[in-house]
Design a protein around this nucleic acid. Structure first.
Lengths: 136, 136
DNA sequence: TTATAATCGGATGTTTTTATCCTTTATTTG
DNA sequence: CAAATAAAGGATAAAAACATCCGATTATAA
């Protein structure tokens, strides 16, 4: 469903959200250790998110990543689209090119509602309000 | 969610189900052309399914694959587990190792029901009854 | 019996995803 | 200013997924 990059991204952003108010910046090292994921790989992901202004970064000593004013309206769907592409969550679960409600694949009706529900959940969840275990 | 191999497998099995009663055997070539997927790759997948007795194969001229008596009770979940492993559809959507209802990831509650529903759909669908567009 | 059509099986090749390494740039602190 | 620190960025490597090639085997039909 989600690539590993995307999974790491969401989990890292969740971690950042939880740290809001504590300290301003969080380094890659700390996040990677907390999530138990490869640090260098996670660094690339966070850089990518920062480049797209989904999170904020600061260089130098005491630097790191955080969720700031500029990221207030960023949703989980923004994260997903940046990591896995705009069309993720829109393609047929069986990869059938012509799948639609008119010409559905066998699983279309069973999966469509599920996927749309997930998409709308992601679209309404502002990352600033994320906490591990729940969305808001 | 599903690997390409698994997607091809489900679509091919659907095709076989639709051909039941018409001709006994269907060759890889015909299936691959119908699904618009690489023939040699699909051949491997069908061989794998046949080896696990999920579908039936016949060599020689006029040979091919079909759904027979021996495959009457095979479900879509059997196909999925064979192609993508037993643990697919059981792991956390964010890849968090410790995710559970007690220690859920942010998406756990939003995704759990969805996934269990899909799993039970797959578990109750006998492949013999499959038709493109619906399950039974 | 022989030619043919089809799966079977092993090896190999390609592409994408995941992961690491190393240098550069910006920032803070002493 | 110098040194230390942390992100940024480019190049490379490893692993997994996806795909192809080709000879062997088997069964059927002529």
């Amino acid at each position: 469903m989600f690539s590993k990059s995307c999974q790491y991204a969401i989990r890292a952003v969740t971690y950042l959200a939880e740290q809001q108010g504590n300290v301003k910046n969080v380094g890659v090292k700390e996040i990677a250790e907390s999530l138990q994921v490869p640090q260098q790989f996670l660094a690339k992901i966070l850089q990518q998110l920062a480049k797209h202004n989904l999170i904020t970064s600061m260089k130098g000593p005491g630097g790191g990543f955080y969720l700031g004013e500029a990221n207030a309206n960023v949703t989980l769907l923004d994260i997903v689209k940046t990591m896995d592409g705009k069309n993720t969550l829109n393609t047929c679960i069986l990869g059938k090119p012509s799948c639609s409600s008119e010409h559905p694949c066998p699983l279309h009706h069973h999966f469509y509602g599920c996927r749309e529900g997930l998409k709308s959940t992601l679209a309404t969840c502002m990352i600033g309000t994320l906490v591990d275990g729940k969305l808001c």
